[in-house]
Design a binder for these strands. Structure first.
Length: 561
RNA sequence: GCGCCCGUAGCUCAGUUGGAUAGAGUGUUUGACUACGAAUCAAAAGGCCGCAGGUUCGAAUCCUGCCGGGCGCACCA
């Protein structure tokens, strides 16, 4: 639709503006009564040495007679265009009723790493934001035509892991997660908390954890066996949460398997003179010329620091996926780390140079009463939160319907997950957000359930009619035009969300779309209308796009609320 | 000390590469179910876009300074 208008304008503006330039310039005005599309003529004014008003008026008269134009006029430097309603409605329905409406033809290979938890405690709300973003970004990129691989690195070793191991060994008394019915990752986490408590009483406890790490590193059989057992519990619990929240990975990496690797890359770089060996032993990289500090890579004792395994992992991913781009969904507290990583990869100038590496930095979650702090017990646990939300959703479902227990459980869980995911994705990725758990349990206004409800309403109408869809022009009301235009906008929005890696672009659009649908629904009878076929086609088009957006946000659709 | 990010309605947030009169949701007040689903719709009220300069046809958006908040800057991970 927009394309046809751009072509028409390009015919009259060549060679001063190309189609691409027109496309960039063309905007949707803030007030729909002004125009469907507007072309600001201010930049053209310089080029043509005519006033914007004259250029706009000139263009208006040139295109006014075209069959796709209902009205074209010049208003204070803008060319304002209304499209022909018959043409517009037929065009949008034709496009939006086709499968894969809005899908793109990009063809990059992209690796998206997200979640990446430590195995000493269960997932919390921060992980859920990370996962929701990673999952949605992956789906959006994939929809835009890219080949996407989702990966996760499990930080399954280190002194923090030994802390929960130590506390379990000393105070666990051989109990198993099954004994108390505790979810296994929570079971492990409980001993991490217990460690912190015991370390306060016993100042040597921190040292003991450090000693245990050393035993682990030399392969002490007992310690390694305990590590395997407890990591097994953690993974078992994680899998359950991943299933519950609806995510999965194409490739999983484990820190314990790669933490020693990458040394060769560093020694290689040292030989090439990219890095320096200091007199007192450590190998460092000097990043002063790009405004970063000196960074130690190999310690005096020859062992590598954490970033070396990230360097190795970047190479490993390049080898396994031959990626064009490697995205890391990680909190903004690690921005410096990724600057350093990219700089080092650039220095090494291998197939995974820093230019291909992108840190998709997301903001932190704060609660209304402040930051989440594990020490103060204010961390919102992922599983608990999902189930609590589901319980509240179940109350709402029970208010409205008489359903079996199983049906209530299934439906309320889907509604709860929609509420949570939508809430987590509606704020722009990079920004910190205040997350009020009570807000996520709200089912009205700008929420996941509002969107699900809109979708279910559309489904409900379609279930009730067997009138064939009809995309022939009809006398469209303002509500229908608004909805049609919004449906069409999806093609721009999904590209923009992919380019900016911001699911929030999509969720904000989705809310607007549903609002337009509900207004239409309220004002325009469908089934008992003389243009039932056309309105059913419009409802179908809405349902397609709404469903696609939900899919791209990682939210499961439901046909009935 | 050095660096990065954020400040928009009481609260939570949108606002595309600078574009027309700055928008939603929520909360408050009020109206609409004999209706294709009221988890909906409609209306009112609510703003020195942190402050002060600058850039230009035009600034919430770009630049500088200041104020307020967050986060980094380990031979930790």
């Amino acid at each position: 639709m927009k394309t046809a208008l751009i072509e028409l304008l390009a015919k009259h503006l060549a060679p001063d503006l190309t189609s691409d330039e027109i496309s960039n310039l063309l905007e949707i005005p803030p007030d729909e009564t002004l125009a469907d599309y507007a072309l600001p003529c201010f930049t053209l004014a310089k080029k043509l040495r005519k006033s914007p008003a004259i250029i706009a008026a000139d263009l208006a008269s040139k295109i006014a007679d075209d069959p796709i134009i209902a009205e074209a006029k010049a208003v204070s430097g803008y060319l304002n265009v209304f499209l022909d309603r018959s043409w517009l409605s037929a065009r949008v329905l034709d496009l939006a009723l086709a499968p894969q409406f809005g899908a793109g033809g990009a063809h990059e290979t992209t690796v998206v790493e997200f979640c990446s938890p430590n195995t000493n405690k269960p997932l919390h709300l921060g992980h859920l934001r990370n996962i929701a973003i990673g999952e949605s970004v992956s789906r959006i990129l994939s929809f835009n035509g890219n080949k996407v691989y989702k990966t996760c690195i499990f930080n399954d070793r280190g002194v923090h892991i030994c802390k929960s191991m130590l506390a379990y060994r000393d105070f666990g008394g051989g109990t198993l997660p099954g004994d108390s019915g505790t979810k296994p990752d929570h079971f492990v986490g409980d001993y991490y908390v217990l460690f912190a408590k015991k370390a306060k009483e016993d100042p040597t406890y921190e040292d003991q954890a450090q000693q245990m790490l050393e035993q682990w590193e030399v392969g002490d059989a007992e310690v390694v066996a305990l590590w395997r057992t407890m990591n097994g519990w953690a993974f078992e619990g994680f899998r359950e949460t991943f299933d519950l929240f609806g995510t999965s990975f194409d490739r999983e990496y484990y820190e314990s398997q790669i933490y020693k690797k990458g040394r060769e890359i560093i020694l290689d770089g040292l030989a090439q003179g990219l890095f320096q060996k200091k007199e007192d032993g450590p190998v460092v990289v000097d990043l002063a010329d790009i405004g970063l500090d000196e960074k130690v890579l190999l310690r005096s004792n020859g062992t590598s620091v954490y970033i070396v395994q990230d360097i190795y992992l970047a190479h490993l991913k390049a080898k396994e996926f031959n990626y064009d781009r490697s995205i890391y969904v990680v909190g903004n507290e690690q921005e410096y780390h990724f600057k350093v990583l990219k700089a080092i990869l650039d220095l090494l100038d291998t197939e995974c140079t820093g230019g291909r590496v992108h840190h998709l930095s997301h903001g932190m979650i704060e609660l209304p009463e402040g930051k989440m702090k594990s020490r103060e017990g204010t961390v919102v646990d992922a599983d608990d939160f999902i189930w609590e939300t589901a319980a509240l959703a179940a109350e709402e479902v029970n208010k409205r319907w008489q359903l079996s227990e199983a049906e209530v459980k299934e439906r309320s869980l889907k509604i709860a997950l929609a509420a949570i995911k939508y809430q987590l994705l509606k704020t722009e990725t990079g920004k910190n957000m205040v997350f009020n758990p009570k807000e996520a349990l709200r089912f009205e206004g700008d929420t996941g359930p509002y969107v699900l409800y809109s979708y279910a309403r559309a489904s409900s109408i379609l279930r009730k009619s067997d009138v064939p869809l009809d995309a022939n022009p009809w006398e469209v009301s303002e509500f229908e035009v608004r909805l049609l235009k919004k449906i069409y906008l999806f093609t721009d929005i999904v590209k923009l969300a992919g380019a900016r890696l911001t699911p929030s672009t999509l969720s904000n659009y989705l809310f607007d779309l549903c609002r337009n649908f509900n207004e239409f629904y309220h004002e325009c009878p469908v089934l008992r209308s003389e243009v039932a076929g056309q309105r059913l086609a419009l409802v179908t088009a809405f349902r397609n796009v709404c469903g696609q957006c939900l899919e791209l946000l990682g939210i499961e659709k439901i046909e009935e609320m």
